[in-house]
């Protein structure tokens, strides 16, 4: 486990996940620290994305799935029966691999979450839209065309818009599933710098199959293999002197 320098934001205990009879995750226990970037790495099919999507119950929509164990956010099990999933997803926002802006204006994309959560005051909405776009390092590029379609933005801008949209509802945690894998190196660099800035305000959990990206952006790294959490430690430790041979083999390209 990484050094407990910060408060713990999210805890999982013996968390297992099943697609029908297939156990995709086996007994994952992990403490995610606040205001840090935690990266999940591992080969395709290792369960890292399934685990990420379990943290705000995105997998609920897949039929035939079930979970065992606990995911505790602020001490409350998010799989408890009284949990409001819409409110959970406000607290634990998500950004996906492919940017998915709504076919609406830039402004309305960011305002969307605020409105469905009941914010009706136009000046409060406008203020939060600006704050979110600034936090996502997009404001200066779009401030003069907020009423233009979000679909006219470049790929990198669209992804930062999706980040702004996630931030607008003031989440505690932002989950990012391969947020830069569809972007060119410059747009990727912007997203990575943005992640570094965002951790001052938010807790970030990122899945990436780009190991170098995990090394660059994260404070703690978890290596998954065949549905198990093989090793979880400070990113520097994982990439300079991992404890487990399997981790070493993976990050040095000696796998299989």
């Amino acid at each position: 486990m990484p050094n407990p320098t910060n408060h713990i934001e999210l805890v999982t205990r013996d968390f297992s996940f099943y697609y029908g009879d297939f156990r995709a995750l086996t007994s994952i226990s992990m403490d995610v620290e606040r205001n840090r970037v935690t990266a999940f790495i591992g080969p395709s099919g290792c369960g890292k994305s399934t685990f990420l999507r379990s943290l705000n119950r995105m997998n609920d929509i897949i039929p035939g799935t079930r979970v065992e164990g606990k995911v505790l956010l602020g001490g409350v099990d998010i799989y408890g029966k009284d949990v409001d999933v819409v409110d959970l997803r406000r607290k634990v926002g998500m950004v996906f691999q492919k940017s998915n802006p709504f076919p609406k204006s830039i402004f309305d994309n960011v305002a969307y979450g605020l409105r469905i959560h009941g914010e009706r005051n136009p000046s409060a909405v406008a203020q939060r839209v600006e704050e979110s776009l600034r936090a996502a390092a997009l404001w200066n590029e779009v401030k003069d065309r907020l009423d233009k379609s979000a679909l006219d933005l470049s790929g990198g801008q669209q992804q930062r818009l999706c980040i702004a949209r996630a931030l607008a509802v003031k989440p505690e945690i932002v989950l990012m599933d391969e947020p830069a894998s569809a972007l060119d190196p410059l747009a990727t660099q912007k997203i990575e710098e943005l992640i570094f800035e965002l951790k001052k305000e938010y807790t970030i959990i990122i899945v990436t199959h780009n190991m170098q990206q995990a090394a660059r952006v994260s404070d703690a790294t978890a290596f998954f293999y065949l549905g198990e959490l093989v090793e979880f430690d400070e990113t520097k430790k994982i990439f300079t002197n991992p404890k487990e041979k399997k981790t070493e083999d993976y990050i040095t390209g000696r796998f299989g």
Partner: peptide
């Protein structure tokens, strides 16, 4: 230096 080489490519 070790950290920069390992983490920043």
């Amino acid at each position: 230096c070790l950290k920069l080489l390992a983490l920043q490519q």
